[in-house]
Amino acid sequence: MTTPEWLKPGIYGALLGAAFVSIVGFSWGGWMTGNGAEEMANKLAGEEVIAALVPVCLDMSRTDNDRIAKLTTIREASSFKRRDAVMETGWATIPGSDGPNRDLAKACVEGLDLDAS
């Protein structure tokens, strides 16, 4: 099949235009693939679950019989080790799970009032 000479610039323009629109759309236009949308949704859902569980962590810290000793240990830990200290207390363990959650421990450290006496 031969295409007329006058049609070739239009075909090339359409192909280049489609490539340009695709690049601009995915780079700056906010378009994304299904996989990208799924990753974003999973990240957002995880953040929301952690935010919902922070009150559980804080309540566990308030009702713990060894609260004073554990808070002292957390306060004495350096700022980047406090998350690990909260994980060791058991307050960052999601009910029904086997071990502590690092993200929940980080959020719990931020929720604990460590500067108060």
Rank of each mutant, 00 (worst) to 15 (best):
T3Y: 10
E5Y: 06
E5A: 14
E5T: 07
L7W: 05
G10K: 10
G13T: 10
G13K: 04
G17S: 03
A18N: 10
A18C: 08
A19K: 01
S22E: 12
S22Q: 07
S22W: 15
I23H: 04
I23E: 09
I23N: 01
G25N: 09
S27F: 10
S27T: 08
W28S: 04
W28K: 10
T33G: 08
G34Q: 09
N35F: 06
A37C: 07
E38F: 14
E39M: 14
M40T: 02
M40Q: 12
A41P: 03
A41T: 12
A41R: 15
A41L: 15
N42P: 04
K43H: 12
K43D: 09
L44K: 15
L44I: 15
A45Q: 11
E48A: 14
E48F: 11
V49S: 09
I50Q: 05
A51M: 07
A52M: 12
V54A: 15
P55W: 12
P55M: 12
C57V: 08
C57G: 09
L58M: 11
L58F: 06
M60F: 05
S61I: 13
S61W: 02
R62M: 11
R62E: 14
T63H: 15
T63W: 06
T63Y: 12
N65E: 14
D66P: 03
A69V: 13
K70T: 01
K70G: 02
K70E: 04
L71K: 00
T72F: 02
T73Q: 10
T73V: 08
I74A: 00
R75E: 02
E76P: 01
E76Y: 02
E76T: 01
S78R: 03
S79E: 06
R82L: 04
D84L: 02
D84W: 00
V86S: 01
V86Q: 00
M87H: 02
P95L: 03
G96V: 03
S97Q: 12
N101C: 08
D103S: 12
L104F: 04
L114V: 06
A116T: 11
S117D: 15
